[in-house]
Design a protein around this nucleic acid. Structure first.
Lengths: 183, 183
DNA sequence: CCTCCGTTTCAGAAATTTCTGAAATCTCTG
DNA sequence: CAGAGATTTCAGAAATTTCTGAAACGGAGG
């Protein structure tokens, strides 16, 4: 397994970006490699291609599996594990968003609710600020839950329409009445 | 400056979450402290409240300023710098999203374009995959650019309407014709 | 129930990031 | 322009994270 210059550069970039994305270099590189590979790869091939230790590969793959960002494949007569990324990029995005929400948002939302449950602490400003933050996060996660339900086709439509949607929203009363009246 | 139990717990939580959010513990704590404070605080107060070194506070504030997440305030007859977070949470969210995009997305988009510019590398699959990824990111950043333009009021409306918007989008031809025809 | 092939675990090494105290710098004010 | 107050810089210490090699584990065949 030798990488083409294109793969090489892509893999290195993902490795470097890893820390910004909340994963480590190795995990970023493994993911990049799988992403560009038309065929599933096993741990040994990944180890060799990236020049890292076998155990590091194992840990990286475990991490990627915990994110459900990679798929396991098997071939008849070969008991090694092979890994791929989904073909469908939208599926990847959905996974990514869902996992980041789970790791970066949900714990805080839980904590905010906890703090509010503890009742008045005699610090009105802080309490109000926490309530406001919780409400905002709830609104955003609620919106996210709606978007998550949409099939990809509509989601793409929504995104490409972009600003046009907003034009339909009236500042005061939701969707422009003259439009919504007629169904 | 002694923290109330409420502030204490909030601050510690933000410190712990820091690493998941791509900032360090101290930066998370400083931000949390400022967020809950009804009045601007100076570096000395922050240092004391969090029990960290003065230089660490300085670095943390510098980091927060580079994210434009805090505001500088001054009081007459006092030449120390005081810091606050914006009152408007939506402004905070906008800043956060903009900065994360700048740090986590833009460099990769640039890199992908670079890779494509380097011309055919004789690796059709990888090239196609990279192009597909670039297109997806472009679509999403394009959509983001549209949303960014909206005033908060409309954005909130959009989010609270949630799934209802999607219902307006026809699977085949954009917004449902019977609605868009009449302006 | 061995043995072989593959994977995972884990303790310590290496690398990186964060934090501190001391010194340097900056800038008002008298 | 000297001195006091405030902030920043920076080299090394401390803490944390990542990576490795060796050993443990697991299970399919013989």
């Amino acid at each position: 397994m030798t990488l083409t210059p294109l793969q090489q550069e892509f893999v290195l970039h993902f490795g470097e970006m890893g820390s910004r994305w909340g994963i480590n270099r190795t995990v970023g590189q493994i993911y990049a490699l799988l992403f560009l590979s038309s065929v599933p790869l096993n741990a040994e091939q990944i180890t060799e291609a990236l020049g890292i230790s076998r155990s590091n590969t194992s840990m990286g793959l475990k991490e990627l599996q915990s994110w459900t960002l990679v798929r396991l494949k098997h071939f008849p007569g070969d008991r090694r594990d092979y890994f791929t990324t989904p073909d469908d990029l939208w599926e990847i995005v959905r996974t990514l968003v869902a996992e980041r929400k789970k790791r970066e948002i949900d714990p805080t939302l839980t904590k905010l609710r906890e703090l509010e449950m503890q009742g008045p602490a005699g610090d009105d400003y802080a309490e109000a600020r926490i309530a406001e933050l919780r409400e905002l996060i709830e609104m955003m996660t609620g919106f996210y839950a709606e978007m998550e339900k949409l099939e990809t086709e509509r989601l793409v439509k929504l995104m490409t329409l972009g600003g046009k949607i907003a034009g339909l929203i009236d500042r005061t009363g939701g969707i422009i009445p003259s439009l919504t009246k007629r169904k």
